[in-house]
Design a protein around this nucleic acid. Structure first.
Lengths: 146, 146
DNA sequence: GCAATTTAGGATATTAACATCTGAATAGCA
DNA sequence: TGCTATTCAGATGTTAATATCCTAAATTGC
């Protein structure tokens, strides 16, 4: 579903959301806590900095922190730099010319499911899944009412 | 979403479903029609034969055909030999110890979406998406009633 | 049985994802 | 101000997925 890299990114951001008030967190701390290769995570977090999801600070007392409040950070923004979740999902069979009007055979049947997935990543924020034991996310709530 | 290989498999099976009554179809015919590398598709179709999705016939007038009626062939059976769609979807963050009872933070929020995807692949058959312009698949119908 | 055809599948390239290593920037202190 | 420890950043290597090539095995028709 998610690539390894996108999964690392998401887990790291969730970890940072927990420690948002404790100043910058070093990459080796995150890597050790989550069991992720430190140098690779460094590269991944760097990508998130360029995507304005995180801010970084070099030197002693440096590290990473969220650039946005967890409440205003949809999962899509964390994952998008690595996986083309929304775009590639438009056609199950990967047909580039497949739009809603000139639909391939699988398109209509798949569309509804794909929209659910896209909706989840767009509307669920980091804050929504930060605490443990959440019964229902913002995303699933709005589905039910839809 | 789907690996390249799984996508090839699905497109080929859909193509075969269209020609189910016209006898076996050669791999080079399928490959040419769909723009897929022929030798690679040959391997992929061979995997589907071992998975009892297709039957093959060698020699002149040989080729591939569906081993099952399109109505009785869920997309999951076509895709499963290549991608672990259902299994890996249990936890968004790939935590192997993450079950429904000891859920990771993201689990509950993700579960509902993942179930939708799994349900689509399990309940949508090749026949459901064979014809063009299908308004609503079997899968989406049952969601609405749920 | 022989030749033509077509799948089966092993061996080999190529590409992209994943992981590791070296270098650049910052902060604090002498 | 310049030195050193610290930490992020970008370049380099490694593995797995994708694609190609080539030979073997099976089937048909003559």
């Amino acid at each position: 579903m998610l690539s390894q890299t996108a999964e690392y990114a998401l887990r790291a951001v969730l970890f940072l959301a927990e420690r948002q008030d404790q100043g910058p967190v070093r990459v080796d701390q995150i890597a050790a806590a989550l069991g992720i290769p430190a140098n690779y995570l460094s590269k991944t977090l760097n990508t998130l900095v360029r995507a304005r999801v995180l801010t970084s600070l070099r030197g002693p007392h440096g590290g990473f922190r969220l650039a946005v409040a967890a409440e205003d950070l949809p999962l899509l923004r964390v994952v998008a730099p690595f996986d083309k979740i929304v775009e590639r999902r438009h056609c199950l069979l990967g047909n580039p010319e497949c739009s809603d009007r000139t639909a391939c055979d699988a398109h209509q049947a798949w569309k509804e499911t794909a929209d659910k997935v896209a909706h989840f990543f767009r509307t669920t924020t980091v804050a929504d899944i930060r605490g443990k034991g959440i019964a229902q996310s913002r995303a699933s709530r709005s589905w039910r009412s839809a």
